[in-house]
């Protein structure tokens, strides 16, 4: 069994209104050294697969088809055996 920890964020080229709001709020709290915030989604997916490569391939597929929207989002993931 493998566990994928998937991080999905808006692409750098896409304005992130939530991130901008959080940045402003942090500045107002005195954290003026905060340069940028990107808000995203975090998913933990357990996959039963014969090998790490097979699991990784499937997770890529899932991200491209459903979990992330490639028009506006980027994804990365870490894969560990559990």
């Amino acid at each position: 069994m493998y566990q994928a920890k998937i991080y999905i964020t808006l692409k750098q080229s896409v304005l992130d209104p939530q991130g901008s709001a959080v940045t402003k709020s942090l500045h107002a709290m005195g954290y003026e050294n905060v340069k940028d915030v990107r808000v995203g989604r975090y998913l933990v997916v357990d996959v039963d697969a014969p090998s790490k490569e097979a699991a990784g391939e499937q997770v890529h597929d899932m991200c491209r088809k459903l979990l992330a929207n490639p028009v506006i989002e980027d994804y990365t993931f870490e894969l560990v055996e559990v």
Partner: peptide, 17 residues
């Protein structure tokens, strides 16, 4: 329709959230 790829592009949260 956007998610299905019948139309191009995507929706983001409204800019005022």
């Amino acid at each position: 329709l956007l998610e299905a790829g019948l139309l191009p592009g995507a929706m983001r949260r409204n800019n005022n959230l």
